[in-house]
Every structure is written in C-alpha cells, then in structure tokens.
Write a protein that binds this DNA or RNA. Structure first.
Lengths: 239, 239
DNA sequence: ACAAAAGTGTTCAACATACACCCATGA
DNA sequence: TCATGGGTGTATGTTGAACACTTTTGT
C-alpha cells in the first residue's frame, strides 16, 4: 500500500485491482522552450508493456488529496518549481487505457521556464523532448499530449501563457520565435512587434542582450499586473 | 452493490466507502432554450443534506463503461434523445464535495432542442429551470453549472453549437434571441443578420412562419455539412 | 389604420496583412 | 567591411459597430 505513494503509477505496475475498483491519476504535460523548440518533460516508462517508450509525468491521486494539489505535487517533485502556471485540460478514462486496471486520469498542462530547472538527480530517465520528434508514447499519452498541445496553442492566442516559457527578461525576437514554434507558423516580424508593443504590456527594461554577434536587442518584461487590470473580454462571433 | 447501478449517486446516499476508495461519476449540464430563456435540466435532490435543492443529472460511471458512454446514457435515460451534442468540460474532485465519500465527477455539457423532448414520466422531479433564476444547488453543482455556462458562451462564439438548441427550422430573429440569451448582451439586428447571412451556412428554406400576428419571418436551416467542409481555423493573437 | 416585427445599406473606426530599407554590433 | 539580426512605417483590405426607414402581415 505504501508503494502506491512513492512509486509512479505510470512507470511501475501496481495491482490496482486489489485496492480500488477505479483509480484516479493525474498526468502533467509540462512544456518548456529551449533551442527555439517547444519541449515536453517526459520519462522513459519502466512498465514491461511500454518498455523504453516515453511517458508523461503522473501519479495516482491520494484519497485525501485535491486534484490540483496532486498536479502541483508532481510538478514540484519533478522540477523543483513552485507557483507555476497549471491548467486542467481533460480527463481520459478509456476502460483499457492502463494495463493495471481501470485508471482514470486527469490531464493538466503546465508551462515553465526550462532554464530555471534542475531536473532531480534521482531521475536520469527524465528528459526534455522536442514535441515534433515525439512519435510513440506509453498508454494513451500521445493522445493526451496532442490534446494539451491544442489547448496550449489556443491559450497562447488569447492569454499571456507564453511568457511563462521565457526567462523574465526577453527580447521581442525570442518572443516571436516562441510563438512561431508553438503555433507552428511563421509570423511577420514588423506586425508581430507592432502588435505586442501596442498592447502596452511589455515593460522596456532599458537593457540589452550581451554576447551576441550582432546588434543587441532590447529586453522586455511582461507586466502581469497591468494585464490583470485591463483584461480584455472576448467578443466576436466567428466560425 | 446492485443499487450502485440503478440508483443515482447524487440523489440517493450510498456508502461508497464500503465499495470504493474513490468513485467516479459523470454530471451532465443539459441546456435547452424556451420562452426566450436559456434553461438547464435539473432534478430535486433526494439527499437529506440537500433536500429540495436543485441537482444536476449524474450517475456513477460503471467499472467497464467509457466516460462519454456514461454521459450519453444519462442523457438518453433522462431525455430519450440520442446523438446529441455533448462535450467534456472539466473534472471536479474536491475531497469533500460529496457527503458519501470521495466522488470525483467529470462534467459534460449538452445542448438539446427542448421542444423535441418528453421528460420521463417516472421523473416528476425533473424540470427545465431558467439559468438566471438558479441560486443554491446541491453539492458543488452551482460551480459546475457556472463553468459549463462559461464554456457554452465561449463555444457559441466559435462553433455552431447554438443551432442544436433550436428546432431544425428557425428564423433569424429566433437565432438572435438565442444568442442574446446565452451571451447575456444585446446585439444589433442588422449586423447580426449580415454576419450570419454572409457566413453562407444557412439554407433558405423558402418557407415562412405562420400564425404570427405580424409579418412572418423566413425560415432557415443550418447547413452542418457545408460547415464541416469550410471550417475556419482560428488565428488572431489577442489578449 | 394601426400595431408589431421583418427586412435592408452606408459610413466610420479598428485591426490584420503585406511589404523593404537603414541601423548597430562583433568578427 | 561584412555578416547578422535589430529596428521601423505605410498602404490596403477586412471586419465590427453604429445607426433609421420601409415593408409585410394580422387585427
């Protein structure tokens, strides 16, 4: 029974049937951004059925634990980060989705600044994998990833989630590369800059990049406070 | 044990603890439209704790049942309708949300043409309740309703879900009244008509209203096929 | 003839898109 | 001086918003 809390339900086979008819887990799709690519934090599955395949970070929810708390626990256990952006996406409950029995999983996605993370030394199997290189995954995790990626793309256009993927100080170029990587399309540089500068939510830090082999870019910081105050509501009917 | 399948987890107290550590249920927020008002199908709770309060339609998920199947089952049991629009919204898992123990519930919303529904005679407690009159509800159902209503409002602006709330043949006026009721704001008639007619997704049926004490309106039908083919993808970055 | 809702067009402002040149820096 | 990306403005088309009168029907 103890092992239920210390082992990971996705990487170690547990006879859930002996404890629960139905078990609840949380799976986290943790997005990061590095080398101009969108990445996801994944672990190699230990489970025989899925030996060597990539798996999301997940765990069962403890009987007295809130769902969101469980997601934060997984996140801080694996990345050491607290207070990160986290959002529930969807629940996956296919009867045969887990070989150990009926495991219904609630998927969350998170966006973190990958640069500020020391992966736990205890987990050499943990890797930041570029999203576009991912093919097979364990369980239905490929599908979960897909749905979370869709959600991220939608949110990026409507809320300032992207800034959590960058360091606090960033150039407009970095921001654009990020948007292009997540939305998977090229954007016009002048229009992109115009748009973000005209939103008036980027604080000009009066600083510049250094150590670049070309003209250094100005650095900005996203003003979350100003955003919270001037939040736009969404109006147009269009489909 | 048998009673778990025939009784409703939200209206009859069951000692879940004896069977499961955690139970999974599905709750359906079923929207309808009548008398120019958005309504939800609700039932009076039988549970002592929530005697007389409104409750969503829900039931526990059977061990071998897909989540979505469970939602469809609830829907067709209560409304007799098949093949309706149904969408998963969010999962609610607060530790104390159900007095019978830990019950994690997956919320779905549905939109149906209320006119085509005969409520099951076996359920005199079932009612179409105008959304704006709803105050207290059993459990956390008020919160669930709120979240589903938000989602419905968002979807209405981006996908043609609204048409499922109307009869097959409808006037532009009826469509506008529906949008105004769901989005809770007035819309300009000329702009509304222009927008929907220019989408070119409404088939002019060459029919008119009858028995109205004024000039009869033309009737239209939404062309779902055409929509599926010309689906817009959503582009602008705005927040 | 009157009441009640149907139907219709134009103007203006805001915003998305397309597009090309000069500038600052390090090598 | 060259290579590399940083930084800028204008013109055009589309779309949303505001707004008032005529038409058709039933009573």
């Amino acid at each position: 029974m103890m092992s239920m809390y210390t082992k990971n339900i996705n990487t170690h086979l547990i006879e859930i049937k002996d404890y629960f008819k139905v078990a609840i887990s949380v799976d986290c799709v943790i997005f990061g951004f590095a080398e101009d690519k969108l990445k996801v934090l994944l672990i190699k599955s230990d489970l025989n059925e899925y030996k060597g395949k990539w798996s999301l970070l997940g765990d069962i929810v403890r009987p007295d634990e809130e769902l969101e708390k469980a997601a934060y626990r997984i996140l801080s256990d694996r990345t050491g980060l607290e207070n990160v952006y986290l959002e529930q996406v969807q629940t996956f409950g296919a009867v045969d989705r887990h070989p150990a029995g009926r495991v219904i999983t609630v998927a969350y996605y998170s966006v973190v600044n990958l640069a500020g993370i020391c992966l736990q030394a205890a987990n050499p199997e943990l890797h930041w994998v570029p999203v576009e290189t991912i093919r097979d995954m364990a369980f239905d995790h490929r599908q979960i990833l897909e749905v979370c990626l869709d959600r991220l793309q939608q949110q990026m256009m409507v809320q300032p989630v992207g800034f959590n993927l960058l360091p606090e100080k960033f150039s407009l170029r970095a921001l654009q590369v990020l948007y292009e990587a997540v939305l998977r399309r090229e954007l016009d540089r002048r229009n992109f800059r115009k748009k973000f500068l005209s939103m008036d939510l980027l604080d000009d830090l009066q600083e510049e990049e250094s150590d670049v082999p070309h003209r250094p870019a100005k650095l900005y910081k996203f003003n979350f406070n100003k955003y919270e105050q001037h939040r736009k509501r969404y109006l147009a009917i269009a489909f």
